[in-house]
Structure formats: C-alpha cells, structure tokens
Design a protein around this nucleic acid. Structure first.
Length: 426
RNA sequence: GGCGCCGUGGCCGAGUGGUUAGGCAGCGGCCUGCAAAGCCGCGUACAGCGGUUCGAAUCCGCUCGGCGCCUCCA
C-alpha cells in the first residue's frame, strides 16, 4: 500500500501489515453545522482505515473536534448564547451529520476542551526549551527558533509575513500557543499564565500525542490546513522533541462555481442538506469518483451522475448472480493500494456480476447497503399480480393502468423472465 | 510576488512511451404488448507550439488558461 506524502511530495510505501497504523485526521472547528466539504476528510479517513484493516493492518483512527476557538466565541456572542453551550450543540450536530454517512465513528474523537491539561503541559515544555515565550498572558511559539519551519508548506521563512499581527509578538511570524482571556469572552481555563484558552494549532499536537503517542504514521486533513495549521502543528511537536506524523495526507477541496467551498467564501452546502436531498449513498459514490488529492466540483449534475451510478450497482444485485474467480479481487485491491485510487477501483468493479464479491468491495466504502433489496408492500405486490393476470389476458389497458398506480406509490414494475420485479423509484 | 496542483471526447474521470479505461448523458439496435432494467454497437479525446524518440495524452522546454495556499477555512 502506498500513499502520497505531502511532506516529501512523493508516494510512499506504508510499513508492512500488521502495522500498526496510527492515524490522526483533523476534524472541524465546531460553531455551526458542518458543510459537505468537511465530510471529505472524515470519509477519506474512515475509508483508508477500513481498507487497511482488510489488508491485515491494525489501525487506530483519531479525529478531533475543536470546540475551543476564536470563532466559537464570536459566534456565541452573536447568537447571545454561552460559548460552551454553542460548542456542545455544534459538536452534537457534527456527530449526527457525519453519523448519517453510515460509516461508523473514528476510534477516538477527542474534544479540545477536554485536553486542556495536556495542552498546558506541552506549552510549558516548549517554554522550557526556549521555543516559546510569554507575553502578557499570551504564549507564542518562536518560529525562527525552529530550523525546519516551512518544510511542510514549502514556504521560506524569510518570505513569510505576519500570522495574526500583534504588538505582543517578538516576531510577527510567531503564532499563539495560548491566548489570554479577552473582554467579552464568557469562559476561560486556568493556566500558569492566567486565564485563557489554547491557540488554534496546539490542541491537535496535544490530542494526537495523547491518543497516538509522540510518533504516528498518518496525519490527514484538508489541503487548506497545510499552512498554517499543519505547519504550526508540526513545528510545535518537533520543537518539543516529538517525531510526530510521518506521512501527511491533504485532501483536495470541494468547489462550488469554480471556487473553494468554505465558510469564509460563503458558498457552502451543509452536509445535512446534501444528505437530505441526495442521500448518503450518492454522496459517497460522488466522493469515490474523484481522486482524493484533487479538488472536485460540487454540482447537481455530478450528484445526479453519482446517484445514477449507485442505482446501477443496485441493479446488479437485482440481476442474476454470476460468480467470478476470486482473483478478480486482486485488480480492485491493486487500484486501492496505489494511492487509494478509488476512481480506478470503481471502474474495476463496474464490470462485476458476482454479488458476493461486489458486496465485499462496496462494503469497503460503507456501501454494502446497495446490495440490500427492499421488499415491496403487500398491497403493491397484489397490484403487480393483478397486472400479471391482465397481461396474460392481453388486457394491456388495465395492465398499464395498474402499472401507473404502482408508480404513483413510488415503485417501478419490471417484467423479468420469472415474472415481475418491484423496484423503488429513485 | 513566493510555494504547490492541474488542463483528457457534451459532462465527470482513469491512464507516467506503443494495445478499447470506466461512468453519466446522447444516438442506433436486441429484448418487451408497451416500458423499465440488461445486453450489443457508435462518438475516434488528450490546452497550444516546439523538442527528444522508430513511436508521446504519457518525457523536456516555452506559451496560454484554471485552481489552492501564503489571513480564518476540511
């Protein structure tokens, strides 16, 4: 199994099974409902885990929920509710919406707010090592002290400009590890530097280490996190003497009208909305059709095509099962082993008529549900049987009327060799 | 300006030197009382220019165009 590593900019072979493979995927900052774009790293992380497990690996997947952040305070002030209250309900929305993808949960989903002691300890360690400094209740990471800074994003330190300008910073390129409580912020945690809360990046360093250890195999997240979030995360952990993540996976952005879908751009479709309109299967197939590293356009046409494709798989299970030699699996496996090329894998299984093999392949992506047949209600079966009799008597007017009635109930009649089939209409 | 990614047939999208990718849509046909599903066939694509090569969508160079990051963002 090989995966493209953003840090080395080359595909890399994973250690042989059983690993273990320890994986950390950056989850969202929660202060409103997540959008479809947020679902991509979530889905990708679980898919990779599922595939690696089928390859004989032992995998531990950790995905955080960042429930402490400037934006949480801002949003809570606007909505005139407590920041902790907002964070709690937004976390719950996130769990519900991603839960409805039907892929299960990561092994651990830590909250930043429950990792404060570890965060404080890490910051103290960075201070002891001289990689950070205190300034009026804030703590900043000294970027220039870390020779590897810029390696992940490919940026040169000399060319970098301020991240969040502040008079308290020694160097404007430095970033906050801890922020002192500001007026209007309704909640803060105690720390050796006074009441406050963690900066944006430190929580991931602390949570990854808490649940995976100081060194782990894979770190994932959206491409827009490469800088500054992941660069900063890497710098903090390395400066604190941790080897940290070895392979970085950055998934491509979802685009809407040729532009990245992001809360900051304002062109978002919530996951909830997409799930309600198109359903989880179409969404998952849609993700499958694009290469995980490349951006994909989110359009009704693309979702329609994905839904049609999902229906195509359902039809295979409605047809006769024609077993294939087990070797067919190797071709599917080869596609996924090659940097998780799902578009290629999809092309391979498209030809498959073997129910069991196809179900197994779809199950990797949480799509085994496509193999399930839904039984039509008794009264519709009765109508279909009446239609059969009408057809036998060549009373096609009556037969078509009955078909119309069945269609009005949302089902489609298909005449097959053995009689008829009732299939729910898309 | 810096760093990085990418341009494949109507749309999506595989493919790192020579053989039909695949899907969706469309058209023709088989099947059907008519349909649906399925099956068969069709469209002869690789941004442009130049180079390397017996041979390039695939390698090199240039040009044009798009996108991301460099500030919050999955």
């Amino acid at each position: 199994m090989r995966l493209y590593n953003s840090l080395t900019r080359a595909p890399e072979e994973l250690p042989p099974p059983p690993g273990p493979i320890r994986m950390y995927v950056c989850g969202p900052t929660v202060y409103q409902r997540v959008h479809v774009g947020n679902a991509r790293p979530f889905v990708l992380g679980i898919w990779i885990k599922r595939w690696l497990e089928r390859r004989g690996y032992e995998v531990k997947l950790v995905s955080n929920i960042t429930d402490v952040d400037d934006r949480v305070y801002e949003a809570s002030a606007e909505q005139r509710i407590g920041s902790r209250e907002l964070a709690a309900s937004a976390s719950e929305w996130y769990r519900q919406d991603t839960g409805d993808l039907g892929l299960g949960r990561p092994d651990v989903e830590p909250l930043a707010s429950e990792t404060i002691p570890e965060i404080v300890a890490l910051v103290e360690e960075l201070l002891e090592r001289g990689a950070a400094y205190v300034a009026d209740g804030d703590v900043y990471f000294r970027v220039a002290s870390h020779p590897e800074y810029g390696r992940l994003s490919g940026a040169r330190l000399e060319e970098m400009i301020a991240q969040e300008p502040s008079e308290l910073k020694v160097d404007q390129r430095d970033f906050a590890l801890w922020k002192a409580q500001k007026p209007g912020e309704d909640f803060a945690w105690e720390s050796p530097w006074g009441p406050g809360r963690p900066g944006w990046h430190i929580e991931c360093s602390a949570m990854a280490e808490k649940f995976l250890g100081s060194e782990f195999e894979i770190h994932g997240g959206g491409n827009d996190l490469r800088f500054p979030h992941h660069e900063n995360e890497l710098a903090q952990s390395r400066a604190a003497g941790r080897p940290f993540a070895r392979l970085w996976m950055h998934n491509g952005m979802l685009e809407l009208d040729q532009e990245k879908m992001a809360k900051s751009v304002g062109n978002v479709r919530t996951l909830r909305e997409v799930l309600d309109v198109w359903g989880r299967e179409a969404l998952l197939v849609y993700f499958l059709t694009g290469q995980w590293r490349k951006p994909i356009d989110f359009t009704p046409e693309a979702m329609e095509a994905a839904a049609a494709r999902a229906e195509g798989f359902r039809n295979v299970f409605r047809d006769e099962n024609k077993p294939l030699p087990p070797e067919a699996w190797a071709e599917f496996a080869a596609a996924l082993d090659d940097d998780f090329n799902t578009a290629q894998a999809l092309a391979v299984i498209h030809e498959w008529t073997d129910h069991e093999l196809l179900r197994r392949a779809l199950d990797v992506f949480g799509l085994a549900s496509l193999a399930k047949q839904t039984e039509a209600p008794r009264e519709l079966r009765a109508l279909a049987e009446r239609r059969e009799r009408a057809r036998a008597e060549r009373d096609f007017g009556e037969a078509d009327r009955l078909r119309g009635e069945i269609e009005d109930a949302g089902w489609e009649v298909r005449d097959v060799a053995e009689g008829f089939q009732l299939v729910p209409k898309r």
